[in-house]
């Protein structure tokens, strides 16, 4: 069977979802943001909710997410995406509302909005990409930067005594009664990508129940910020990030 014989519409098993626009993403080669965008868009596509979805983009690497997600979408001020999403969902409760945020946005400047949206139990989905660094501004220390990790503003490594501890915000929000589903995933192997997509699907499905925030953390890489090749960065992620940010569900709904 020749290549030409295989390339037929009926044999197509994977192509880019229509919920992503044709705009080339600005992310660095190998960045987990691109993969995560794809998964969120694929879930929206497969659920058939493109016209029912309202998105909120953050400030940070994903600031231009609004150019990529082919849904009606607003670009929030730094850290305030959950506040925007709160109002959007309250005013249009029949819509699917999601925020897409990085660790600086969600866990530093936007901690208040994150905690309170989660604690109020807003019926929104929060997609949280944690790469332990401020990527957009050039690789500065983030609240999630690991101890000893070298960044532009912790050039000798993050010191616990001086800079405090890396913040496990996902564990924190899982404690709040307003969150319904909290999970931590990664997207650097095919199996993990498939699992992460299931989690994102679950988060959007649960949003229909109106039982509170569904929260999906994606532990991701920042090969530019970490100053590694994309493949090397993924190995570093597995060796260093995952022991501190272990993958898996932190909160799943109790069986009724």
């Amino acid at each position: 069977m020749t290549r030409e014989e295989i390339i037929k519409p009926e044999n197509l098993v994977y192509s880019k979802t229509k919920v992503l626009t044709d705009t080339v993403m600005h992310y660095c080669p190998g960045c987990g943001h691109g993969t995560t965008h794809r998964l969120v868009a694929e879930v929206i596509d497969e659920m058939g909710i493109q016209s029912e979805t309202l998105g909120v983009a953050p400030v940070g690497c994903a600031v231009l997410a609004y150019n990529y997600f082919d849904v009606d979408i607003a670009e929030a001020a730094h850290g305030r995406a959950p506040a925007l999403a709160t109002a959007m969902k309250r005013l249009r409760p029949e819509k699917f509302v999601f925020t897409y945020q990085g660790d600086g946005d969600l866990a530093a400047i936007g901690t208040g909005e994150t905690i309170h949206a989660c604690n109020r139990g807003e019926n929104i989905t929060i997609i949280f990409v944690n790469n332990g660094i401020y990527g957009m501004t050039g690789g500065q220390m983030a609240p999630t930067t690991l101890e000893g990790m070298v960044t532009a503003t912790s050039p000798y490594g993050r010191e616990q005594q001086f800079n405090g501890h890396p913040l496990k915000i996902t564990e924190l929000v899982a404690q709040l009664p307003g969150t319904y589903y909290v999970t931590r995933q990664a997207v650097y192997t095919p199996a993990l990508v498939r699992r992460a997509k299931k989690a994102i699907r679950q988060a959007f499905e649960y949003q229909k129940l109106n039982k509170g925030v569904t929260f999906v953390e994606i532990v991701s890489n920042c090969n530019s910020g970490w100053k590694m090749s994309p493949v090397k960065a993924n190995e570093w992620l597995e060796e260093n990030m995952l022991p501190f940010y272990p993958l898996g569900d932190l909160k799943v709904p109790e069986k009724e």
Partner: peptide, 22 residues
């Protein structure tokens, strides 16, 4: 009409931003 007490004025104005966007 939705009435919501926010956690701060910062959140309030950004809720307004979100609602106005709709």
């Amino acid at each position: 009409m939705v009435v919501l007490q926010a956690e701060s004025e910062t959140a309030s104005i950004n809720m307004v931003y979100g609602g106005a966007a709709l």
